[in-house]
């Protein structure tokens, strides 16, 4: 079994991926290359542990090389896996008398190009200015945070306006995601009563929150709903 004592780290990946290294990159590259070459020679002989370590050591190196090649961040994982499969298939072609990294770099560059070609063949709308302008932004809309805060505030007021038993049922069962047993133990109410209270609370909330903004606010504030509808605690 070959033990890989890799001087790994982010800097190593970047330098290894960038080709001719500067500063200390040369010695790092040489050390890494020798280690990987030894591991690959052992893998050719059937040493699974050395092969496992080799492939794991290749992951950041290949990812760095793919990024340097211009692969988009969301496609790097695909390229890395293509490269791993190619390494597996091509392992008999590696000559341990030669450096390992150029062999790996050739595979990675080719698979990166294949990946970018595949991505380029998929239909995209970026060449159509109108479609580009009309494309919906996947991110949150402006003001989404304020709206979310408003919704939380209205919901909190509506829950607070519920009768005690119903409020407990909502807080523990729905918001707190506790079980019936836990809630029964906490509140001292029977499981059946909790179910009924939750059902009535949800019905009241649906009624309250179904109204438009200010009206819902008012209804939640004065707690009128439960009384209006005659929904009482059990």
């Amino acid at each position: 079994m070959v033990a890989l004592a890799l001087p790994a780290g982010p800097g190593l990946t970047a330098r290894s991926a960038a080709g001719p290294a500067r500063e200390h990159g040369v010695s790092l590259d040489t050390g890494l290359d020798r280690t990987l070459a030894t591991a690959m020679a052992a893998a050719q002989a059937g040493d699974a542990e050395a092969y496992r370590r080799l492939l794991r050591a290749c992951l950041p190196v290949v990812a760095g090389m793919a990024r340097a090649q211009g692969v988009r961040p969301d496609a790097v994982d695909d390229v890395v896996q293509d490269v791993l499969l190619t390494i597996h298939r091509a392992r008999a072609t590696y000559d341990p008398g030669r450096p390992f990294l150029p062999w790996l770099r050739a595979i990675t560059q080719r698979r990166a190009i294949d990946g970018m070609r595949r991505a380029g063949r998929r239909p995209r709308e970026v060449h159509d200015p109108i479609a580009y302008e009309a494309e919906a932004d996947g991110g949150p809309a402006p003001g989404a945070g304020l709206e979310a805060r408003d919704r939380v505030r209205v919901l909190a007021r509506a829950v607070a306006a519920l009768p005690e038993g119903q409020r407990q049922a909502v807080e523990h069962l729905a918001l707190g995601e506790r079980s019936l047993d836990e809630t029964a133990a906490l509140t001292g109410r029977s499981k059946g009563a909790l179910k009924v209270n939750l059902h009535r609370a949800l019905k009241a909330l649906r009624h309250t929150l179904g109204r438009d903004g200010p009206e819902a606010d008012r209804a939640a504030a004065d707690g009128a709903d439960a009384r209006e509808r005659g929904t009482h605690d059990v």
Binding site: A43, Q44, A45, G46, D47, A48, E49, Y51, R52, L55, R56, L59, D74, A75, D77, D78, V80, Q81, L84, L85, H88, R91, A92, R118, R122
Partner: peptide
């Protein structure tokens, strides 16, 4: 957007190393 959901790298490494044969 990828064509297939990528396996976690560790699973692939395990699969390749697990089925390794001398060449």
């Amino acid at each position: 957007m990828s064509e297939r959901a990528p396996l976690p790298h560790d699973e692939l490494v395990e699969a390749l190393a697990g089925g390794l044969r001398p060449v």
